[in-house]
Every structure is written in C-alpha cells, then in structure tokens.
Amino acid sequence: MTSALVVKGLSLSVPSAKGRVTVIDDLSFDIPAGRRVGLVGESGSGKSLTAYSLMRLIKDPVRIEKGEIFLGGEEILGMKMKEFRHLRGNDISMIYQDPMSALNPIMRIGAQIVESIQLHSDLNNSQARKVAIELLASVGIPEPDRRIDSYPFEMSGGMLQRVVIAIALSGEPKVLIADEATTALDVTTQARVLTLIDKLAAERGLSVLLITHDLGVAAQFSDEIMVMYAGKLVERGEVNQIFSNPVHPYTKALLNSRCDYTIDVTKPINSIAGQPPRPDNRPTGCVFSPRCMHAQPKCHAEVPRLESVKGRLTACFRAEELLELGVAK
C-alpha cells in the first residue's frame, strides 16, 4: 500500500526555564493512501503540534529540531515556503477545532470560500461562486445559494464547521487533517459532522488524520489508531486490535478510565494515578513508567522503541509478556 504521508523522526522543542525541552520526540508514522488514521492522546501529548507540523504552521517559540515529512513522496520541511504554499490546501488541508475562530467574523462565508477556491485555481468570480455553492451543498448546508451570503454569526456551530470543511475541501486535497474538529459541537451535531467527513473522505478517496481526545470518536471513525503520550507514539494498530486487545499499558489504562454509558457504575472508574508529565519534567526511560503499574527497573532507565508485536506497533519492553497475560485472562 502506498503512503499518502510519511513522517520520519520528527522532533519539536519549546523553550522553558530549563532551556529548550523536547515536546515531540522522534515521531515516525505514515498515513496509507485512502485510510483514516485516528490519533488519540490527552492534552499536551503533542497531537496538535503534530498536525501543525504537517501543515508547516509551527512558529516561534516552538521549533522543529529534526525530521522529515513526505507528502506524496515529496519532502516538505526543507521546501521553500513559497513552494509549499502550492501544496497546502491543494494536497493537504486541515479542519480546525473552533469554527468561529477559523472563519473571519466580518466576511460573508461565500467570500471566504471563494477566496480559498481562487487561491487554488484560475476560476473567475462567478465560476468560483458556483463552485462554492456546490461545495456548500455537498457539506449538507440547506439552501446553499441563499446561505452563501450569510455571515458566520448567523449560523450555528455545526453549520459553521460544515463551512470550514467546505473550505478545507476547496483545493481538492488528498490528505485531510481534522484536529478535534467536532470537539466544540453538541453530541448530536458531532455525530452528523463526523458522518459527513467520513462520507466525503470515502467519495473523494481522501487519506484522513483524525485527531481527537475522544476514544469513542476515534473508535467509530478510524481504520487505524495511533496513541500518543507525552510527545511519544506509544502504540499503533488496527482499530479493532487497539480497542479490543490493547497492549501498551497506557492505551489499556486510557481505555479503562473512559466514562461512557456502558461502564459498570457500581465500581469506581479505573483512573490512572498522577498526571501526564510536563515537557520540562519528562522522566528518563519510558515516558509512561512513573504511572505504569507494570513498570520494572529497566522501564525507568531505558527508552523502549516502537516495535512490532503480533501485528501492531508498541513501545513497551513488556509488550509480549503483557499480551500473553491479556490473552490468558
């Protein structure tokens, strides 16, 4: 299978009282063409910085220390910004979390979509407007020929996120990043917007990176799952593997600490003790070791590499052992 996107050894740093500290540490992954990869983790794990790196939106004081990103085979981090601008929107585009701040509040939504279309094509105003109306229709906005002249404040959050999706799709990208795209929406609206993204991705053969802290969203709308913790990728596998038989103790603990309406209410939730380490205070060895109930001396001293264990990638010294234990239960 070809990869729409490949990330190799990406590391990012931020300044702190202790000098520059690493926030994303040697991150490597790919997004296979046409697949939906869910990236889950808690706040501060580095999900959004990953997304911003892919869009080359990393700005001072955050810095990319090393790494390569290949988009359709072309390396983009070393590319001149002028060249990359032709790819951003055309080859890769992104839906942001808050639709209200992603859009210009004093510009009609139509003008904002037309602007984006014309940036990526040679269409004149009336042609671009036609395309914009078609786009609005395709993202499920009723009466698109009338709503195109609305201002953002005249629309609900769910409708605005559809407008943002329309803009993201206006350059006909191949890779779509959705960064907590439905987190700000009500649950019924969220379900509809996610279903829409799913449908559009299938129709257009998009490769999707779905970034979310919501395990339910990831489970329902991804083919593969990547789990990040404290700037590291700790596990990656097919969605069924990760949710039915996770190996990494963090993945397992994260799933156990969820609180959806299927859990047993007679017992306390299995929460993870402590909290994720801050970037300037990351432990030596495995980043999860201070909170891990399976940690051994080696885990506190050495950094585990992401390795293949029974068809999935896990960064844990005790992966095989724990997998057997898990199966035995």
Binding site: P142, S156, G158, M159, V187, T188, T189, Q190, A191, R192, L194, T195, D214, L215, G216, V217, A218, A219, Q220, F221, V239, N240, F243, S244, L255, R258, D260, Y261, T262
Partner: peptide
C-alpha cells in the same frame, strides 16, 4: 437520539445516527 449520537469506544458498536433536520 442523544444516546445513539454518542460514539462508543468500541469499533464494533452499531452506528445509529438519525438524519433529521438540524435546523
């Protein structure tokens, strides 16, 4: 409608999203 809109952390859970008017 609310209950069926909650995505559950199980990939095999049935997706039941109603397609009602959102106005």
């Amino acid at each position: 409608g609310l209950l069926s809109s909650v995505p559950l952390a199980s990939p095999t859970a049935e997706k039941r999203i109603s397609e009602q008017d959102q106005s």
